[in-house]
Every structure is written in structure tokens, then in C-alpha cells.
Design a protein around this nucleic acid. Sequence first.
DNA 1: AAATATTTTTAGTCTTATCTAAATTTTATT
DNA 2: AATAAAATTTAGATAAGACTAAAAATATTT
Lengths: 219, 219
Amino acid sequence: MITLTEENYIKAIYHLGNNGENIVNTNAIAEEMRTKASSVSDMIKKLSEKNYVDYKKYQGVTLTADGKFVAINIIRKHRLWEVFLVEKLNFSWDEVHEVAEHLEHIKSEKLINQLEAFLEFPKHDPHGDPIPDKEGNFHHIEKIVLSKAEIGTVYKCVGVDDTSTSFLKYLDSNKIALGTLITIIHKEPYDNSIKIRLDDTEIVVSQSVAKNLYLEMVN
Amino acid sequence: MITLTEENYIKAIYHLGNNGENIVNTNAIAEEMRTKASSVSDMIKKLSEKNYVDYKKYQGVTLTADGKFVAINIIRKHRLWEVFLVEKLNFSWDEVHEVAEHLEHIKSEKLINQLEAFLEFPKHDPHGDPIPDKEGNFHHIEKIVLSKAEIGTVYKCVGVDDTSTSFLKYLDSNKIALGTLITIIHKEPYDNSIKIRLDDTEIVVSQSVAKNLYLEMVN
DNA sequence: AAATATTTTTAGTCTTATCTAAATTTTATT
DNA sequence: AATAAAATTTAGATAAGACTAAAAATATTT
């Protein structure tokens, strides 16, 4: 049996290693898990024995196929629960993360598959992140970051990189939601701010906002 | 903070003590929790320090008001999740218990209150057990056990005492569900079996079945 | 009321996941 | 290439929750 703590370590390694692609080092995991490097060392040994990570002393870790499967399954559960919370229980998109952190560890294949069906097989969570299917396949969409969008073009907002409450509340207050259409009016070279047109208004967003908002081309 | 294990002990004490009314002894808790009496002793000390139980050495335990509140809240969550699983995710009533055992420990006031609203404030779980409201009040209904029902009278099935898979499957296969109307045809003194009429059929149920099915008078 | 049986508690270990402090290895700098 | 700095691992402790074995208290028999 896999423990809750092991699951959280695997999830952290998946995220830090750019979805399980790269080697992740001990200190990074310690920071992500808000624990100490020595604790991480201990846990890595355990995960290695259980074959969730490949590990050579002092060389960092990568996820094995088993480890990736665990990680993707947790992400699947997390995102489906987020959709449930927003669509059915009227949570706002900045409230769901914490509760989903707990719900994602409930172990029942049937539960999550039925939940997925009940939600009518959503492809994205409330922040625009893709939801993998039962087999662990992601539904990939072409998205670009607002900071690299082109002047005059119309885009649809499809996701966020930063999911912090403050950023999501900023978007709410500026009437930017997933699906919102955005036209690029002007890019200011001095501070990299961008003027965009929404439904009926024009606003200027800073570089840090532009770096955290994902768009899809509208044809 | 209260731990998962503490919550489970409190729940066990609540059930064993007839909803927190009676004194519960160590061995009974050990059996219910599938652990050893010595472990129970340790845990009781902790629960006593945290003021969830009243405890004098060798005298057994009772729940404090705090303890009862915790217990009732877990029951509330457990039963609401059971309703969700049956009504929204197409679980059958014999499948829900195990998953609800995990979901009941998710800590979010908002989650459970919104879930309750989403389910339209159900008063009973899929086994007919009452769901306490936010304040911990139960919606009490007058119910009698089938073994004490009267000949010729019409009743509505409102609950079960035994929630084991085998019993619930027995009821399913005999087309007995919550809400089913039942007329008492004959009570056999020899073996205390009872002949009942359902919708269109008559069946004989044994004493052990009759002791586990709750009915409500229909007027 | 004494002897026996049962229940409960205590004492001492074990495992998991954490910690601090010290030791070791790798990386960076001179 | 030697040394300093940073990263990582090991060693030894701690807390939670479990265990076994033994001691203490309560209940039951005779």
C-alpha cells in the first residue's frame, strides 16, 4: 500500500521535474514539501525500494513508469474534484485547491470514474489544466502565454499558470474567466505591460499578469 | 487538530455507547477498532486530555459534549456522502459504506454544507438512517422493527439495522427498498418467520431478516 | 471471604515520518 | 589542483499509534 505522504512526494517530484521528465534534486523537494533535506533523503530511499523512483546517491531522482502513473492518477483525481467543487458545489476557482488536496487521496477507482461520468467527462479543470483520462492520457491543447501574444489577434483565455488566490481574484475583478475573448491592442516595450480589449472594456495588464495567463488562438 | 485515528475512536465510542449515552469499556472499543486493549488505553488517555471523553481508570469512558459533537459531525458527513454516492454516482446501497468511511474525514465546513444543499437537504441516508443538520439535530421518525409489526397492517420500509452487503443484496433480490410498501399477512409462531405482501408478490422472511428491517406505519 | 478469572493498565518495543547535527560527496572558486 | 561552499546523506532522537508481555484492578466463583 502507498501512503498519503508517499503520494505527496511523488506528486511533488512529478511537478518539479516538469511532469516527470527531468531529474529532481533533494533540496527542491524539501522546499516544495516544506520539510528538511534529510527527511527527503529518507523518503527517496523508501520510494526507490518501492520502485516509484530511480535514484543514485547524490544524483537526484526521476520517476519510474510506476511513479508517473501514480502522479498522473492523483492529478486526475485532483482536477476532477476541482471541477465538481466549482460546477456542482458553487466553489469559486480560488477556493478549490485546498479541499481537492485532500479529496485527491481518496482511493476508489469506481468513485473517480463515476465522478468523471457524472461531470460529463470534462477535459479541463477550473484553471484550464488538462484532466488525464483513465489510462493517463492528457488532452493536449495548443496554448500560448499572453506575454507572447501578437498585436491585433483575438485569443480565448484557456488557462492560468499561477493558481494563487490573489491572482485568481485579480482575474475575477477584471472579468477575465476561462473562455473570455481577448484582443491584443498594444504591447508597451518600456515595462512589458499589455493593453487588451475584453468584451466591452480595454484594460492594461502588467508583465507578471501576462506571464501567467494562457491563451488559445481563435480562428 | 484532531487526527483521523482519534476521529475513528470517537465514532466507535459513540456507536458502542448507544449514541454516546452509555459507558463504553476498553475491550469493546478494541474489538470495534480491530486493535488491542492496550492501544485503546493509550488512546483513551489522549482523548481524555483533549477533552473528548470523560474517563476514570478502569471505569470505562463516556463522550463529553465535545466528543459527541465530533461524532455527530462525522456521522453527518458519512451519511451525506452516502446519499451523494447513491443518488449522483450510481453506487448501490451496499457499496457506499467503505468509500464514505474515507470521505467522512475530509475537513471542510463549506464542502459538507454545500454538498448538503446540492443534495437538497436529505433527511435520511440510503439505509434509512437520519442525517443530522449543521447543529447536530437529528430528524427523528417513528419506526418499528418488522418482527414487531402487526398482522393486516400496511407499513412503509424506512430503514435497515444490518447494513452488510449480504443483507442489502438479499433485500435487492427480493425487491425490498426504502419506500417499499409492506403488508403483514401472517406471523408463524413456530420459527418467527413472517409472510408479507409486497407490490404484487407474497414472500416469507425469516426472523433474522425481520429483526433488521425498520418500518413506518402508513395511515 | 478467598481464590480464580477477566479486564484494564503499564512498561518497553516497533514503524513511519519527521527533526537536528554531523559527516560525506559534489560543485564552484580561487 | 587545492580549497571553500553547497548539496546530500547518515546517525541518533522524537512523536503517534500500534504491539507484546507483565502487572494491577475489578468481577466472578467457589
